[in-house]
């Protein structure tokens, strides 16, 4: 089975100095993904500008599956 990891950039608006709040944020996103889209995904909190930006077509999906 394939796994999906979703990277979420943390800006000041959603940042908290408490770990429990940050963990709750990741859990909430994961729960919403499951209830709305029906997919189970690992939520990874990352620093701003981690997700690649591009002037042309945005590359927001990284497929690491090995094609057979």
């Amino acid at each position: 089975m394939d796994d999906i990891e979703i990277m979420v950039e943390v800006d000041e608006e959603i940042f908290s100095d408490e770990l429990k709040v940050m963990n709750a944020l990741a859990d909430k996103i994961s729960s919403r993904m499951r209830s709305i889209l029906g997919i189970s995904a690992k939520i990874t909190l990352v620093e701003p500008s981690t997700i690649e930006r591009s002037a042309g077509k945005a590359k927001r999906v990284i497929d690491k599956r090995i094609s057979k």
Binding site: D11, E12, F15, S16, D17, E47, S49
Partner: peptide, 10 residues
């Protein structure tokens, strides 16, 4: 902030 580091004051 100017260096785009996510930080806050507590």
């Amino acid at each position: 902030k100017a260096e785009h580091v996510t930080c806050s004051r507590t």
